[in-house]
């Protein structure tokens, strides 16, 4: 079922909204679940490419996001991202992760233009 952009954005923000303290852990958990699903279809290389592109596009709004390594290890795929979130306020980290997730989905859809 194809969802429109607005409800999807609301869903993503609603996933982040309840967690005001351990934003980093919640965010990484969401990404881990996302990675599991996506990797089953496009493999590690495909996911890494999508993730790196999403980070690149999101850094125009949040320059403090850690750039994605070229060949990340499976166990430490999101270590840099977690560190970036932990260095920000919960509100900033939550907003950044929401944008990152929205951007990731947009990249998967093939819409790479920056807003």
């Amino acid at each position: 079922m194809k969802t429109s952009h607005l409800p999807r954005h609301q869903i993503i923000k609603s996933l982040m909204a309840p967690h005001t303290e351990n934003v980093a852990d919640v965010s990484i958990n969401l990404w881990a679940q996302m990675a599991t699903q996506v990797i089953s279809i496009v493999g590690d290389d495909g996911f890494n490419s999508l993730y790196a592109r999403s980070i690149f596009l999101s850094r125009s709004t949040f320059p403090w996001l850690a750039p994605s390594p070229l060949a990340p290890q499976t166990d430490h795929r999101f270590a840099g991202l977690k560190m970036s979130f932990e260095e920000q306020t919960p509100a900033q980290a939550s907003e950044a992760n929401s944008l990152l997730l929205i951007t990731f989905i947009r990249v998967m859809e093939g819409r790479n233009e920056q807003k």
Partner: peptide, 20 residues
Amino acid sequence: MRAANAQLVISAIEAHRLTE
């Protein structure tokens, strides 16, 4: 199939990057 999908994704992203 997974490898083929990965290549499709990587190629599409690379095309977008080159276009940019």
